[in-house]
């Protein structure tokens, strides 16, 4: 169990640290790399939770698909100009105040509900064939939501094609 804990803290620290670096980096390619690291670390935590399907989807879709396209676009941006651009530095105080309020809220909620704060025991049977479980849930119970989401994506895709076509003409 020691190893599992170590791994969890490793992934957790990696995720949080990369996330912080991601927001603070000026070079957006670096920021993108740290975002990928965050996603990978989160995937590692999924794996520890034995949510193998979720882990793979995280890799395949977020890290392997979406972020590749992100990086692809970012590469084409003229970085020198971006790096020299003036940031919204004057908002530090507002952001700090908001962050403080949010932090206080979370802490208060934790403090108030500390008595009831227990994680339920992990269901033992879930680890077995969880891909099928996910598939069953998606295609039977949530089939309507699933189809609505896919239509939404289809519309977005057609829209993108139309917009891309217009430019070529």
């Amino acid at each position: 169990m020691m190893l599992a804990k170590l791994l969890f803290y490793f992934f957790a620290l990696l995720a949080v640290g990369s996330a912080v670096l991601m927001v603070t980096r000026r070079n957006i390619v670096h920021a993108a790399v740290f975002l990928v690291t965050t996603l990978l670390a989160t995937a590692g935590i999924f794996l520890q939770l034995e949510a193998e399907f979720l882990f793979v989807v995280q890799l395949l879709v977020y890290a392997g698909g979406i972020m590749v396209l992100f990086v692809f676009v970012i590469m084409l941006v003229n970085l020198d100009i971006e790096m020299r651009a003036v940031r919204f530095n004057k908002q530090w105080t507002v952001a700090g105040a908001l962050a403080f309020v949010l932090a206080m809220q979370v802490l208060t909620a934790l403090w108030v509900g500390r008595k009831t704060f227990h994680l339920p025991a992990a269901p033992a049977a879930l680890a077995e064939r969880n891909t099928e479980t996910v598939a069953d849930a998606l295609f039977s119970h949530f089939v309507l939501a699933f189809e609505v989401a896919s239509i939404l994506l289809l519309v977005a895709m057609i829209g993108a094609v139309v917009m891309g076509k217009r430019r070529a003409e």
Partner: peptide, 9 residues
């Protein structure tokens, strides 16, 4: 899926 995902990284 794992192999496909990782090699795509």
């Amino acid at each position: 899926l794992f192999i496909v995902a990782v090699s795509s990284l």
